[in-house]
């Protein structure tokens, strides 16, 4: 669930904070600035912890509830940090009818974690994503920028091993 508070302590740096204020200054007078600001700020920190949301709310002069409301509404915004490797199994319709469910099950078993969460060592985070539009390669899985297509459950072990 995106609207759970993270247990990972905040480790933001001064440099990141300076960048955040640059972003806010750039967008401040633009109509509808909150979303573009949060998107760019997430690119700086990798996620949107409470501390960062407070800085955004104060910077834009809007209530924290509004910032949190937006951050928790859209699935692209993460309130938890991501793993070193982000594993995404596409669960779009084309992938689903070609057996993406079984691929996801196998990934869960191998990584011992559920979709939407992160492994205990923090190295892998797993998502069951919406259609990524590579339906010609269904079923598809991505690990960071690498794309694996036409998968069978038994391919999963070897692929994940490369990153372990």
């Amino acid at each position: 669930m995106p609207n759970t508070k993270t247990v990972v302590p905040f480790r933001g740096t001064k440099e990141q904070e300076a960048k955040l204020h640059e972003v806010i200054a750039k967008h401040k007078n633009q109509p509808g600035a909150t979303m573009p600001v949060l998107q760019e700020v997430q690119a700086i920190y990798g996620y949107l912890p409470e501390e960062v949301q407070i800085m955004v709310a104060e910077g834009l002069g809007i209530p924290l509830t509004e910032v949190y409301g937006i951050a928790s509404f859209y699935s692209q915004f993460a309130l938890n940090p991501k793993g070193e490797y982000q594993v995404s199994v596409c669960m779009g319709t084309a992938c689903y009818v070609k057996g993406a469910g079984a691929v996801l099950d196998r990934v869960c078993e191998v990584l011992d974690c559920q979709p939407g969460s992160i492994t205990k060592d923090g190295r892998f985070s797993l998502e069951a994503t919406r259609c990524i539009g590579a339906c010609g390669l269904a079923p598809v899985m991505t690990i960071n920028d690498d794309v694996y297509g036409r998968l069978k459950p038994e391919d999963v072990d070897d692929i994940l091993k490369k990153y372990m």
Binding site: G32, T34, M35, P36, Q39, G69, Y74, Q76, R130
Partner: peptide
């Protein structure tokens, strides 16, 4: 260009506009 942030409902016209305005879609 305005980027969506992964909410299917934003394909609905009034939700899309609410989202461009910077709110929950």
């Amino acid at each position: 260009i305005r980027l969506g942030a992964g909410a299917f409902v934003c394909g609905e016209e009034t939700a899309l506009m609410t989202s461009i305005e910077g709110h929950r879609g």
